[in-house]
Amino acid sequence: MSDHHGPESDHHPHVLPMTMYIAVGTALFVLTALTVWTAKFMPEMIFHFTKMQVTPTIAIIIALIIAFTKAALVCGFFMHLHYDKPLNRATFLSGIFFLSLFFLFTLADTLTRDDKVYLREGMPESFKTLTEIPHKPHMVKAMAGYCHHGVKTDDKVHPCHYCTTGHEDFKESDTTVEATPEAKAAE
């Protein structure tokens, strides 16, 4: 084929300085540490000093802000969007745009759903049981013979790492230990 082009019509790479990679990498590690700290340790500290609770909403907003910052760093520098053609940047941003439309309009429905139909006298019991399934999550306590982390209390193979002093919670709350077949067999 006549029109192949040799290396003389070459592409010239845009080489970025090493310091940039190091700086961005460091920033990403620091932000990871920060997001862990804000989620796991900061609420306790704030509570200790100010007696204020960090609500889940605030926690998730903080986490998302950090996540978006990290994402911006990765996209901008590692994926070279900061230096790239506007077209590629537009491609990326259009993804964000249409994704946010997806979020926005789906939530516009799910957050304003009118299935909390005004309840009145006379709703039949059967109808009530049919329609209250999804919206009422409730706590299910641990089964007999299991600690609240879900590990069998007499399991020698997989001891529970979280109940540090033995299955402490289990001993406090559960009284049906005799009822389990294993316990009976042991006696």
Binding site: R120, E121, G122, M123, P124, S126, F127, L130
Partner: peptide
């Protein structure tokens, strides 16, 4: 006047506020 309608394969059931169906 409230009437409670339940669909199931393949019929509709109607229940009234006085518990009647």
């Amino acid at each position: 006047e409230d009437i409670y309608v339940t669909g199931s394969m393949w019929k509709w059931d109607f229940e009234y506020t006085n518990g009647g169906a």
